[in-house]
Design a protein around this nucleic acid. Structure first.
Lengths: 205, 205
DNA sequence: CGCGAATACCGTACGCCATTCGGTTTCTGA
DNA sequence: TCAGAAACCGAATGGCGTACGGTATTCGCG
């Protein structure tokens, strides 16, 4: 487990480790991002690194958790300022932004799969996150249906599940086809689910 | 590389290894499916196992490749017998069937992510497969649009990309939520993309 | 200011992993 | 039937994540 409390030096080092880990993943791939490699990059021994985060898994989960905090803050602000449509735009915008952070998509996808193991540190993270995200998404869908911005025949829960899965699936595919315009694909599909007058927004693979 | 040629004994052993590997993954998880574990399960030493498949990665890719052969055969037969709608049904049916093979979804998802590394044995497999699958899917979509079974405003390539990503994303999510009805979700979404008279098929998460 | 407990960090060692190598046994078609 | 190919093994190698015991540094509190 990550050590609690912390001197100024430790807190700073922890931050440095979190961002350096992403760099190392981006440069060496997920397989090449060993504890030794990350430790070298921040100028620590392996044991020194593991002092800050109890395990490699914990470190990686922490990277995602921190990114989540930032992302949800962005989405909530957009919702407060521009309502549900703003939140949807923010969601797509966040995806677009995260896609440009090298290593992040790779880390997210890798952990999402490893988290299948109930003993994995990321298991609880993904389970909880999935539930929260889907509930929020389903709520937004319902609201858009009330506003007439989305086909009323659709089941909000099923559609929320689908959109979340679509987003995660696109990230996996992006690993093999880096040019993939994830946000564009999502916009195209969501745009197709409007009730009558189809907007026809772009987005090619 | 997998040894070529082969005596009867070797061919039989190879088949046994392929199916046993899935069992071990199902029982011990992807992490627990070490070469030693699989070798023990088939009654071989680690070196003995690696004699049949040059590496662990090669072995796993072979499992997927074999499953693909079966699946595409099913889809092609359905297409020949019942046209494009039959092929779509077959696709959903194959997903449903594979979801019931313990270990298969796990192996597929894990390799899909590992394949991000260009040096990984599965990289070429997923790259090629992705291209073939999307082209076939886009062709089917175009045909369904001509038949009036699908909204004509949709871009076939983008939609094909989306459906493929949706299918893969659902598999990842299924690892954490085993009860997830992947096929149902896909049917619901595709059903929603019909032109005018919405069918409203079920499918809850 | 200075003391001592908490924190930061390191060297070493352990067990597991995939893979390699050189060797022995078993198979089979010519 | 017999040579060469294939099947298989034991042991060794290098890399991995991590546990442990120890030392050096930090900094709130008296």
């Amino acid at each position: 487990m990550a050590r609690r409390g912390g001197y100024a030096k430790g807190i700073a080092k922890r931050e440095e480790i979190l961002s350096t880990a992403l760099d190392v993943i981006a440069r060496h791939g997920y397989r090449g991002a060993s504890v030794k490699e990350i430790a070298d990059a921040v100028g620590l021994s392996q044991a020194g690194l593991l002092h800050h985060f109890g395990s490699k898994e914990d470190l990686f989960v922490e990277v995602l958790r921190k990114r989540d905090e930032h992302d949800t803050a962005v989405a909530l602000t957009a919702f407060a300022e521009r309502g549900i449509t703003g939140a949807l735009d923010a969601f797509v915008g966040v995806m677009r932004a995260n896609a440009d952070v090298p290593g992040l998509v790779l880390l997210y996808s890798a952990l999402a799969v490893e988290a299948a193991d109930p003993d994995h540190a990321a298991h609880a993270y993904f389970r909880d996150r999935r539930e929260i995200f889907r509930a929020a998404l389903a709520g937004g869908i319902r609201q858009m249906q009330d506003d007439g911005a989305l086909d009323a025949h659709l089941d909000p829960d099923t559609l929320a599940t689908a959109i979340h899965a679509l987003a995660d699936g696109l990230q996996v595919h992006m690993l093999i086809e880096p040019g993939l315009d994830m946000a564009g694909v999502i916009q195209h599909v969501v745009g197709a689910l409007r009730p009558e007058p189809r907007h026809d927004e772009g987005g090619r693979a």
